[in-house]
Design a protein around this nucleic acid. Structure first.
Lengths: 193, 193
DNA sequence: CTGATTTGTGCATTATATTTCACAGACCCA
DNA sequence: TGGGTCTGTGAAATATAATGCACAAATCAG
């Protein structure tokens, strides 16, 4: 009776992690976000701590206030190896079959940087949704050929070239070549433009 | 506000629809599913009717009992974020004999990000001065082997590994292998730490 | 140092999700 | 006809989500 279904539940912990991460990324204080979402700060603290079991409506209010889809609040959070004073971290990447892996994530008061490693098989495409407003990406093509398609324009990159573009719009990657292509991708997000 | 946040909420209606559909498909009666999920039938009726606002834990119990992922119960909505555009730059990668080239540089209030491409011939070293206080670097090794030497420690990277370290101290790169090594390097600088 | 802001915690109160029980209508089958 | 299961609804009781307030610790600017 006492412990019914608390932090042990995976989904609840996901909500907690995603909530905190998104709130800090967008530069909201607890008070500010709670007001914006129309809930009490006390509740927000509890949810962020994974200490209770919010209702669907409450989670939805928070998601809306953060500009996220409900499902984005519930899915497993990113591994946030990040932050703090003297980071010395080594990260063994290379899970060969996945097309993308997160190498590093740096969270700072006004901004977030994520470093990704991508690869696309010959002919493959990836269609992305728009990132948060103000985001942009820096792509550096390691090998092969890559086409970056934006609503207005389309750019083809050769190995060794880099491209910077605003990612707060629909975009997609496409590998038009006959060999796999690999690239690194930096995502920059800042709440206040 | 007595019933404000009830059936009007899209997510709640999604849960209702998905729940009923999955339950009938799998041939459960309300009683059977409620028992299996460990909730009361009364609750299940309410949720299926979209008449209340269940907790995360309750929806999760139902999802598990039906063999569904939580996200499958809430069927994501479509956020339409767009607008805005930022620099679209493309950088023609030159490949000089120089060991390093600057691919991109992003300046924002409070921070600067530089993206570099480096390479070291076999046996070569590079000794750097300390960067400004608070700086750190993220290195991603593309090929070969690289040794990063810090005052306290020394790390050896294989291709595909990444390393994050504070660069506001003396450090040096060394290629201990018999082949050239190549890596990308992100430098993060914040005027205010 | 002071003062302002942010965050975490405890507690009493209110709102509501959740349970349990009871009953009624609908449907199928013998 | 009558007994069986399945379903929707109502109401009272209970558990707990959610609020509001007060306070302490940590952080940060002046």
């Amino acid at each position: 009776m006492s412990k019914s279904s608390n932090g042990s539940l995976e989904v609840i912990q996901n909500v907690a992690d995603n909530l905190r991460q998104a709130r800090l990324q967008q530069g909201y204080s607890q008070e500010a976000l709670a007001t914006r979402a129309g809930i009490s700060r006390r509740m927000l603290v509890n949810i962020e701590a994974g200490e209770n079991n919010a209702s669907i409506a409450t989670v939805d209010k928070l998601a809306s206030a953060l500009g996220l889809a409900f499902s984005e609040m519930v899915r497993p959070a990113f591994p946030t190896r990040n932050e703090s004073s003297l980071p010395l971290r080594i990260w063994q990447g290379e899970q060969a079959d996945s097309h993308a892996s997160l190498l590093e994530s740096v969270v700072r008061p006004g901004m977030v940087l994520e470093l990704w490693r991508w690869q696309l098989a010959a002919g493959d495409s990836y269609h992305a949704e728009a990132d948060a407003p103000g985001c942009h990406e820096i792509i550096y093509l390691l090998s092969g050929v890559l086409e970056v398609r934006l609503p207005q324009q389309c750019h083809q990159l050769q190995a060794g070239q880099s491209l910077t573009f605003a990612s707060d719009q629909l975009y997609s990657y496409h590998n038009p070549g006959t060999l796999p292509c690999a690239f690194t991708k930096n995502i920059l997000m800042y709440p206040h433009g």
